[in-house]
Design a protein around this nucleic acid. Structure first.
Length: 731
DNA sequence: ACCGTCGCCATTTTT
DNA sequence: TGGCGACGGT
């Protein structure tokens, strides 16, 4: 039955009892292994599907897993919990959250709602928002929640710390407000579930008995809270199987703890370790390049991926003389590969570290007419108009949701301005009731003018009327909202072209809702809201659409492409400047690069530009250390080694740019040359500073006359110095 | 209540 | 450079 699996995969499928750690390298067929393991449990061992819990991080991954299990065992699969961490926790919380003092119709706040609420807290506590920003508070709260630190504990830990103490107050208030609004944030979804289990042993026991077999995918990216959740659930039966690859841990900056996977055997005595080291994805040169660079990391489990595939082409390293040149080179290569090698558009992926880098490629692709899609950046559900309408939906579902109420109360304009809302807020706070309820009482209060009360009452009536329509199907309800609130009408009246696309987006929202209504089992409002708040951009990535795709390396995890272009491979960009400061970050960056390389099946290009525009100024960076770390015989340099200024002049004449642009470029060329002649002040150059000691230039910024150097000193961290005045010596 | 301008600030983001 | 949020003037 499992003849198409290799020996290790078979072992992973057949080892069902006790803790199992499957170290699955990139492209090693881990999903195949898990899916077959589930089938084996159900078909051969008679385990009920309802006794299996399989957790992933993304909807896309869970969808794929569910479908593949369905193909193997049929419709039985629907009783199985194959979901994301968040979706499974929400499911549990929907049933049990009243035990924590919330009501079951709680809603989920996304990061924007979260930000609004935190700003409220800042205001209410009189915190100086210049001194402690909402961003910092949000990060600290998130970090605390990732590590299961409650507001009270946080306050305790930070007794002596003035700054964190204020943040602790914000955390306390924030949590209180969430509860008042009957809302949870993303992090709460996990940690409230853990809290629920700890405070209610009988609830925990129920789920422990239910789930005889627990499986977790991408285990290397779990944080403390997720670790604890899994640990609690698996404690009873100890049939826990985690799958992961420590080399692909790229979310440490978001609380993922690589120790979870590195120490798994210690946490679960008697662990059986299975390594999947056979790679089925990449040509051997690509795989060996990945292997060759990742061994530079110290914090990892020892393993080496192997492949039976042919060597294939060497990694092509392209040295561009500018970011624009990098873009046009790649556009040209894609065109060439399509015309000459019969490749399709969808075979290509451009991977970068930061979203901002997409722009230049968009320009070059537009110029020569290459269709492309960008993943990431602004999500569909994050668009203003979509969020507005969804706030209405959320609010109709849960009228304690003050954050949503305040978002929509004056959208479209209905003469309820900030001052009126502030008055209402104060009034409601005094009575300790939600804003909406408060509107019912304002008529008796003389603080409100008759203009206020009319406007508010009108709004109140409108909402009541809409509330009576919540029994409609979701697409119908949304249509009603668009109509009754006058939202659509206002957009239609607007002469602004942007509002045109807003209307289109709203139409798309209605069709998305219609599609949800057709295809989902649970067609309820709450199911829709959950779906909408818990989707990501990548979930909607359709791999069959024939266009080139652009995305960050992070988003590309789990995907594969025949041809991959890793761009912006420069010290200071990838790895980023701050990675030079500490080893952990550098190692994570290297893992990110590893993830990028291992996305490629047949061809891999890595490019770097000697000059690029960053924040409006021209900077130059040295080639990425990560490229240097790839063994020499696996790569080939295809950029011409012509001096910078020649290339620039040539580019001018070839593209016959506007004369203005020409002079501009020439100026830049001259500055670059001048400084190079002056003092070798280019990235990659080793220097000695009179005070800071030895270091390496990682970035050179030229701004008219002076050059700013960013230097990573061996013992002093990163400093930015002026070339003209810094006591530097080139060594 | 609304609009324009100024100044600040820049990773990565599975949910 | 450019996008966003805070602020001040009408």
């Amino acid at each position: 039955m499992y003849d198409n699996l290799n020996n290790e995969q078979k072992e992973a499928v057949l080892t069902t009892q006790g803790p199992v750690l499957i170290l699955a390298g990139a492209g090693s067929g881990k999903t195949t292994a898990i899916v077959n393991r589930i089938a084996h449990l159900i078909k051969d061992l008679g385990v009920y599907p309802s006794q299996i819990l399989a957790i992933t991080f993304t909807n896309k991954a869970s969808q794929e897993m569910k479908n593949r299990v369905k193909n193997l065992i049929g419709e039985d699969a629907i009783n199985m919990w194959v979901t994301t961490f968040h979706a499974s926790c929400v499911r549990i919380l929907r049933r049990e959250i009243d035990k924590l003092g919330y009501t079951k119709n709680f809603i989920i706040y996304d990061t924007y709602d979260q930000k609004t609420l935190i700003k409220d807290c800042i205001k209410e506590l009189g915190i100086n928002d210049k001194e402690i920003t909402d961003k910092e508070i949000k990060n600290k709260i998130g970090e605390a929640k990732d590590n299961l630190i409650s507001p009270d504990e946080f306050k305790n830990i930070n007794q002596g710390n003035y700054r964190n103490n204020k943040i602790a107050d914000a955390y306390l208030l924030y949590q209180k407000k969430l509860k008042l609004n009957n809302a949870v944030d993303f992090d709460d979804i996990i940690c409230k579930t853990v809290e629920l289990f700890i405070k209610n042993p009988e609830v925990l026991s129920f789920y422990q008995r239910k789930f005889k077999y627990v499986m977790v995918d991408e285990y290397q990216d779990t944080n403390k809270a997720q670790y604890e959740l899994v640990y609690l659930l698996a404690k009873e039966h100890k049939n826990i199987c985690v799958v992961g690859d420590d080399d692909q841990c790229i979310y440490e900056w978001r609380g993922a703890n690589i120790r979870n996977i590195l120490d798994f055997e210690k946490d679960y005595p008697g662990t059986k370790i299975i390594k999947l080291e056979q790679n089925y994805r990449s040509k051997s040169n690509i795989l060996n390049a990945a292997n060759g660079m990742i061994v530079k990391n110290h914090n990892r489990k020892d393993k080496t991926l192997r492949t039976e595939k042919e060597a294939g082409d060497k990694i092509k390293i392209y040295k561009a003389y500018s970011d624009i040149n990098e873009g046009s080179f790649i556009a040209g290569q894609i065109k060439k590969l399509i015309d000459q090698d019969g490749k399709n558009l969808k075979d290509f992926a451009i991977l970068y570290r930061t979203n901002a880098q997409s722009r230049i490629f968009e320009d070059s692709f537009n110029r020569i007419g290459i269709p492309y899609r960008i993943l990431g950046g602004l999500k569909f559900y994050d668009r203003k108009e979509i969020k507005d309408i969804l706030s209405y939906v959320k609010f109709l579902y849960n009228s304690s949701d003050d954050v949503s109420l305040r978002r929509i109360i004056n959208v479209p304009k209905r003469s309820i301005g900030d001052t009126t809302v502030a008055k209402l807020q104060e009034f409601a706070s005094n009575l300790d009731i939600p804003l909406f309820e408060a509107i019912d009482f304002i008529n008796q209060d003389e603080k409100f003018s008759s203009r206020n009360t009319t406007a508010l009452n009108k709004f109140y009536q409108m909402i009541l009327n809409l509330k009576s329509k919540t029994e409609l199907s979701v697409p119908e309800l949304i249509t009603e909202i668009l109509k009754d609130t006058g939202y659509l009408e206002e957009l239609k009246k607007s002469p602004d072209v942007e509002d045109r696309s807003r209307i289109e987006n709203l139409e798309e929202l209605v069709s998305a809702a219609a599609q949800f209504d057709e295809s989902s089992e649970d067609k309820s409002l709450e199911a829709f809201l959950e779906k909408v708040t818990l989707v990501s951009d990548i979930d909607n990535y359709d791999e069959t659409a024939d266009t080139v795709v652009l995305m960050t390396v992070h988003s590309a995890k789990g995907l594969e492409f025949p041809v991959v272009f890793m761009v912006g491979m420069e010290n200071g960009l990838f790895p980023g400047t701050s990675s030079f400061d500490n080893i952990e970050e550098m190692e994570e960056s290297r893992r990110l690069c590893y993830v990028g390389i291992t996305r490629a099946k047949e061809l891999l290009y890595m490019s770097h530009a000697t000059t690029r525009t960053v924040f409006g100024r021209t900077s130059s960076y040295a080639i990425s250390d990560f490229i240097e770390e790839i063994p020499k015989d696996l790569k080939i340099y295809i950029g011409e080694e012509t001096p910078v200024y020649h290339k620039m002049v040539k580019e001018d004449s070839v593209h016959s740019l506007r004369s203005l642009y020409k002079t501009d470029l020439k100026d830049k060329v001259e500055t670059v040359i001048k400084h190079k002649d002056d003092g070798k002040a280019i990235p990659g150059q080793k220097v000695k500073h009179i005070k800071f000691g030895v270091g390496t230039i990682i970035k050179a910024d030229s701004d008219g006359n002076c050059v700013k150097l960013t230097i990573a000193f061996d013992n002093m961290g990163i400093k930015t110095l002026m070339l003209d005045i810094a006591p530097l010596e080139f060594i």
